[in-house]
Design a protein around this nucleic acid. Structure first.
Lengths: 110, 110
DNA sequence: TAAACACTTAAGTAGAGCCTTAAGTAATAC
DNA sequence: GTATTACTTAAGGCTCTACTTAAGTGTTTA
């Protein structure tokens, strides 16, 4: 319960930054090295590393180092959880609107 | 393009805080006043107001004041956009994994 | 072995973010 | 008309973030 909530924190926090979303965009296509992630961003490499650390801490991305290059890739599970959290709230609200509309419809002629 | 990206920033930022997610949780059930939102939170009222301002700035929530009570409710559009952003990236990645699995399957006996 | 490469660590800084208390304002209830 | 209610504004403090430059470490290439 605590654990789950804290992870959502980290995931949404991670997605709140445009540089990190750009990194995710790149990774959605397929794995990439740190330098590849850095190339399109106007950031120093340490800056990119820090963003990567945030993404990894959130569980959205994982990476492994082979030789001198670190390869990063997307971890779909965390994406699914964040997506679901939003979807559930939206569904709840929309169901409510439906009921309300139905109620208005039914009582229209009173 | 810029506009859209900045709004996603604000939406994910807004969802990154557990107090704000609690407020959204409450609002998913139906509209509520500021005090109602505040009651379960261990926060001063101005604190809650600030969170509300963040939620409104992100477009996830809107509110209107009637008399002396401000009523808040969920704005589903912004939820849909955040949800879609995540879903698209996940779909892209999973499609890739499928292709990869298919490729491995096809070349298994070589 | 020396140079180049791909990170990695450390340290420092400017600005945001989250929270508080204190002091309003406007609407309702008594 | 005074008290209560329901917010609202302002100001300040403390922490966290996003970035930087400078100086490493370990791997490959020439």
């Amino acid at each position: 319960m605590f654990r789950q909530d804290a992870l959502l924190d980290l995931a949404f926090q991670a997605l709140a930054d445009p540089s990190r979303r750009a990194m995710v965009d790149r990774l959605a296509i397929g794995p990439a090295s740190v330098s590849e992630l850095a190339r399109p961003l106007a950031l120093s490499l340490p800056g990119v590393m820090q963003h990567l650390a945030v993404l990894e801490a959130s569980g959205l991305v994982r990476s492994q180092k082979i030789g001198r290059v670190r390869t990063c890739s997307i971890e779909p599970t965390a994406f699914r959880q964040a997506e679901q959290w939003i979807a559930e709230r939206r569904a709840l609200w929309e169901r409510r609107l439906d009921r309300l509309g139905q109620f208005l419809e039914e009582t229209k002629d009173e």
